[in-house]
Write a protein that binds this DNA or RNA. Structure first.
Lengths: 203, 203, 203, 203
DNA sequence: AATGAATGAGCCTTCATTCAT
DNA sequence: GATGAATGAAGGCTCATTCAT
């Protein structure tokens, strides 16, 4: 009936985005489990039917938020990593870049860090696997030569990410939960030092 | 023995324990959110009323499991820590002891690592705060002299735990989720090395 | 017609009404407290979800019944009152009209007389307040000139309703509870006499 | 084991009384329906078992409170009524005495006025019937001579109580619910006037 | 007389999802 | 593409009452 909403057909793309950002907002405020589909609709201005038309399910929305976020985070790192020239610069970048990103997108970061609870639909799960594999390949390809050259320790593949990123992620988690004083950017030097100290070889 | 308030009948203590262990079992198999109060009752043999009589709510049960677990984990570490004599031995112990404990109590460890989802009742929240403070004080008191002596880096207080325990916790989380091959005990040397490399001072 | 907010589909109005009348039926037979939401659904043919979609809670349904009833009762009186020309006719009408109405709608009357137990939701409470104020204003405006003219006693505002309506309401309550023999219409003359005797001025 | 409570065996009478007055307190604060047996126990210091030993059920407790209250109310009126000498004095006393009593025992009065919701146990129901019959007989015997003598209207028996007491009870109900400004004692003259105006014969 | 752990039927409510319009 | 009324399975929790000690 020519209401304001119907007129606002800036297109399908915009509707998807408004749902996604309303969803992140709700997840931040209420938590994933406690956010209802209706919350997201109220917040985004979309109708229930519209949400289901675009995302198929509540978990579909969560997946959308997650995939969007992880892709941006990964892309930002990979892009900058290519401009680094030494193992130390690379390791430090992983830490500092993460700090910068988290500080810029705290809600999204919080959501990514709590992702373990999401029951991803199969399609999303598959895409996520692909994204993660591509990312790991890209990053490991970048670091591999330095390991070969003896600049970095040679360790079981599973242990690199925990050792380099585990500390700053743990700290970040605390900070996002309001349990740490200093923002990640203030302590990123300390964590970069620690990561490099743990990865470097002593010759 | 007996609780602070009342002399309990023989069975009371046992009933509480049976509920607690049935709950952990269910949380492990179904997840916290998907475990129903009825599940716990069926598994433990307690009636619904009895569960509510003792714990007040589903979250009350989860709190009970959590507090019991964290206290045992903390106590085990503190006890062993007192037998160590050097900063390096202390740092390594934190890592290796965690590995040993997790391997021995994988279900409890998984539950503790996912604790962020629990909406702790106020009483539990308060007790948890107390427990955590006591623990931090005890552990920091043990390490402080070595920092003073220059054996370990002097860092912002908030950063010690993430740097020392972050990596092994991250690895453990992956392993408990079935995403890492080697059990923590097999890689504990690597993570102990990394922790000490990140904490030691170079003179 | 349509509600204030939305143009309702044909069925929506009907569904609300069927729930409301089923609810009154259940309240009459089982009592407010003993009526379950399921009873109302069974009786009305609505699903649980539909009931909650429209009324939000069990108390929301009770409020709906109450508000509908009180509005009809008030409207019926106000309409007839306007056709009366003397203080005595007005006072007598309040009593006799109440008797007629109660005899015609005994279930609704019983429910209104027991309303004290309802925990009205805030929204309902506010609307009720508005309805009551409007009603009082309208009725008092009608009687005021006769007080001014000296046809009726001048009393504290709070006391008019109890003195005029208190007796017949008390009698009605007893009758609806099966504790009085004669129906209100049989004794309405007596109560109208009493009300006028208590309100008239003797010159 | 020799706790303060066990020692406090001032006798069975005292325990009963403490339960009764705790119950009234809870009914006032939470309402009859929302008061739990546990509430009463907490408030009175009695154990659940003790409450059931003395009263048999929750309704048994409510009956106890009710019967105690109604007996005191009735007795107070009957006693004073016997000292009155005229119909007018009697009618006025019924009203004013009620005002005084309500002002002195507001909680009990509120409870008595809401008594319709109580599902009295059979024994209590029988006793109540007896009490009410005795009371009616006594009061009606007192008034009967004045009706015979033509001092008061001759009306259907069921209508006397509503006409005389209905208004002040309605006013009182409002006042106890916080909806009237003036306390009953301030307006008792007005209601006594109204009652007598409605009951007197005009010769 | 007292105690309080245990019982369990039953209730209100939530919420993801469907589908007719 | 959009809308929102309808669905109904499922779950957390309450609370009067019992009974062994």
């Amino acid at each position: 009936m020519g209401s304001r909403k119907t007129v606002m057909r800036a297109g399908t793309r915009a509707r998807r985005q408004s749902i996604l950002s309303a969803a992140l907002d709700c997840f931040t405020r209420f938590g994933l489990a406690s956010t209802t589909v209706e919350d997201i609709c109220r917040e985004s201005g979309a109708s229930i039917g519209s949400l289901y038309h675009h995302f198929g399910s509540k978990e579909g929305v969560a997946s959308g938020v997650f995939i969007d976020g992880i892709q941006r985070l990964n892309a930002d790192l990979v892009k900058k990593l290519k401009r680094r020239k030494s193992a130390e610069a690379g390791v430090r970048l992983v830490v500092t870049q993460y700090c910068d990103w988290v500080t810029k997108h705290p809600d999204l970061a919080r959501f990514l860090l709590h992702s373990r609870d999401i029951a991803f639909p199969d399609a999303a799960r598959a895409e996520l696997k692909r994204i993660h594999r591509d990312y790991i390949v890209e990053v490991f390809s970048w670091f591999a030569p330095f390991v070969t050259a003896g600049d970095m320790k040679r360790l079981p593949p599973d242990t690199y990410v925990p050792i380099i990123s585990g500390p700053i992620q743990d700290y970040t988690r605390n900070w996002l939960a309001g349990q740490s004083q200093s923002s990640p950017v203030e302590v990123k030097g300390i964590f970069a030092d620690a990561a490099w100290a743990a990865m470097r070889t002593v010759r």
